[in-house]
Amino acid sequence: MADIFNEIDEELRKDKAQEWWGRYGKFVIGACVVVVAAAGGYTWFEQQRTAELRELADRYSHALTQADAGETDPALAALQSLSQEADGEGIAMIASFQRAGILADQDRHAEAAEVYAAVAADDGVDPLYRGLAELKAILHRSVAGEDTAALLTEIEPLTLDGEPWRYSARMVAASLAMGAGDMEKAKAYLTQVSDDDGAPNSARTQAVEILQAIGS
């Protein structure tokens, strides 16, 4: 008798399962298809992204090879194109920094400053590197002959405590102050560096040497 009840119970379970599958089976199948498609799409996306990044890296490497070979203009053009087409990628910023460096090496400081300024103004770039770009832009604008007093005002925020590039900014600010004839301000910036135990040793040593040279 128990076997009969077991058979009846099993048949009921089968009927309920078939009823459930008939009602919801298509949704289960659809969900499985979506999951498989999503996994496949993600894999394809990652493969495409890897290929794109590799292609960008190859272009950057080729531009550096051109620069080393003295093919400056093609290298600059390639780096500019790379920085524009790779917008949003870290390599775009690196290409811009490299391009500005090549321009500076050619004494084209005003052009180098423009490239650095563009990086500094890009909200997509990490604030750390935006600050460095701004500092470099001011430095090269100074070398290009811009008014040092005006640049001294612009650089001041970068010299404040807590700013990541404050030591370099203070050294540049000291140089600008000397160029503007404000020796007291120059000494103040140099002293900030020389008396700061947290400053890099090279910066502290240089600050002390300059202070001695200008008769602090």
Rank of each mutant, 00 (worst) to 15 (best):
A2R: 15
E7Y: 10
E11Q: 13
D15C: 08
K16L: 14
A17L: 12
E19T: 13
Y24V: 12
G25C: 05
K26L: 11
G30C: 14
C32I: 15
V34E: 06
A39N: 14
G40P: 04
G40E: 05
G40R: 02
G41Q: 05
W44L: 12
F45Y: 15
E46D: 12
E46Q: 06
Q47G: 15
Q47V: 12
Q48T: 09
L53T: 11
L53S: 07
D58R: 11
S61F: 14
T65A: 14
Q66Y: 00
A77Q: 08
A77N: 05
A78N: 04
S83W: 01
S83P: 04
E89P: 00
G90E: 14
A92T: 02
M93Q: 05
A95M: 01
L103D: 00
A104D: 03
D105K: 04
D105Y: 08
R108F: 01
A113R: 00
E114L: 11
V119H: 06
A121Y: 11
G124N: 01
G124Y: 02
L128A: 06
Y129W: 13
R130D: 06
R130N: 10
E134R: 15
E134F: 03
L135G: 00
A137Y: 00
I138H: 04
I138R: 03
S142F: 08
S142D: 09
G145E: 04
E146Y: 04
D147M: 09
T148P: 13
A149T: 12
A150W: 02
L151I: 05
T153L: 10
E154Y: 04
E154R: 13
E156G: 01
E156K: 04
P157R: 13
L160Y: 14
S168R: 14
V172I: 13
G179K: 09
D182W: 02
E184K: 07
A186W: 02
A188E: 15
A188Q: 13
T191Y: 09
T191I: 11
Q192G: 15
D195P: 03
G198Q: 12
G198L: 09
P200N: 02
N201E: 15
A203F: 06
V208M: 13
L211G: 10
Q212S: 10
Q212D: 09
